[in-house]
């Protein structure tokens, strides 16, 4: 479903070059939740932006359903759902207007977009907010709207960048439920986070990024076997210290 092969990206700095992502490769199948983990600055978001076609990789490629980002970025974008780290909304539009606007951007038929808007809003308990101005929503409500926005075109692959950032316990649980629904819906899901405890509960497989390199990749058991550590947190601490 999603295939990342040898992705590399460097940024020029005043005193040299920063290799933010260095030869990163992984594959994700339908119905699988992949945790792309790493501390701040590990290269998670840069990897995600290259998959989305927002950044051009120096080498390597990302492929969704056999279509490479570099070859046909629009086709790849239409197959991806994206929930960004920020819960930005258009404050002067109603929730419904905003969702339909994004549906239109993804070329979803207008009638079907209305139906999906209703059903997804029902699923995320924001139906009562549909005709309210987005600027009036609370943080948690905005987060739910953002999650619906990412699914409005029913993409086969979902990318979630730090989805639990700034959320309270209820908000975090909403994300957990949402990802569970995505898994059961057969989506390939990538979750970027540095919250290892949450990732351990959420993900089927993990990729541990450090300084741009994918150090480990596999299921929790595989990682434990590879590293000899007892938990994801231990694996990570060991990785950073050594």
């Amino acid at each position: 479903m999603l295939h990342v092969d040898s992705l590399t990206k460097s940024f020029p700095l005043d005193d040299g070059v920063l290799t933010a992502v260095d030869d990163v490769s992984f594959r994700i199948s339908p119905g699988e939740v992949f945790g792309l983990l790493g501390p701040n600055g590990a290269g998670k978001t840069t990897t995600m932006r290259m998959i989305l076609g927002l950044l051009e990789p120096d080498s390597g490629y990302a492929e969704v359903d056999g279509v490479r980002t570099a070859t046909d970025p629009m086709a790849v974008k239409s197959r991806l759902g994206f929930v960004s780290a920020s819960d930005g909304v258009y404050p002067w539009l109603t929730v419904r207007e905003m969702l339909l606007y994004f549906a239109d951007l993804y070329a979803v038929d207008a009638t079907l977009a209305e139906q999906r808007c209703e059903s997804l809003a029902d699923m995320m308990d924001i139906k009562h907010l549909l005709d309210r101005r987005a600027g009036e929503l609370s943080t948690g409500q905005r987060q739910r709207v953002t999650l619906v926005r990412g699914l409005i075109h029913d993409p086969p692959v979902m990318l979630l960048d730090e989805p639990t950032r700034g959320l309270d316990v209820v908000g975090v649980q909403t994300i957990f439920d949402y990802i569970d629904i995505l898994r059961r819906g057969g989506k390939a899901v990538v979750v970027c986070t540095h919250r290892l405890d949450e990732a351990e509960r959420l993900c089927d497989r993990f990729g541990l990024l450090h300084a741009g390199k994918l150090k480990y990749c596999g299921t929790l058991n595989e990682l434990k076997e590879q590293t000899g550590q007892a938990s994801l947190v231990d694996i990570f601490v060991d990785l950073i210290r050594n």
Partner: peptide, 27 residues
């Protein structure tokens, strides 16, 4: 979040039809 199976199926049922490419109208 609603756990109603009917609403949950929003993510799995009927993949949205893409509109016929009408860039002018979308613009």
């Amino acid at each position: 979040m609603s756990n109603d199976p009917q609403t949950r199926s929003a993510t799995t049922q009927h993949r949205p039809r893409r509109q016929k490419h009408q860039p002018g109208n979308r613009l």
